[in-house]
Amino acid sequence: MKNKRMKIARIEMDLSQEQLAELVGITRQTIGLIELGKYNPSLNLCIAICKALGKTLNDLFWEE
């Protein structure tokens, strides 16, 4: 399932996939795959992404 909340949070912070990837220390492709729902990140990576986007795990990764 696509992770639209992560994509919206990234756009709200005016960050490109490349910039977010640079902040977290991973590749742009991985960010792209997480947003497309084609890669399940580890908890550590989720936390790093949340910190970079100023969100909580619930905001970005908890599905209702």
Binding site: L23, V24, G25, I26, T27, Q29, T30, L33, Y39, P41, S42, N44, L45, A48, K51, A52, G54
Partner: peptide
């Protein structure tokens, strides 16, 4: 903001 730099786990 303190973000721990990760190795790309997918590539690893």
């Amino acid at each position: 903001m303190n973000i721990k730099k990760n190795k790309d786990e997918r590539i690893e």
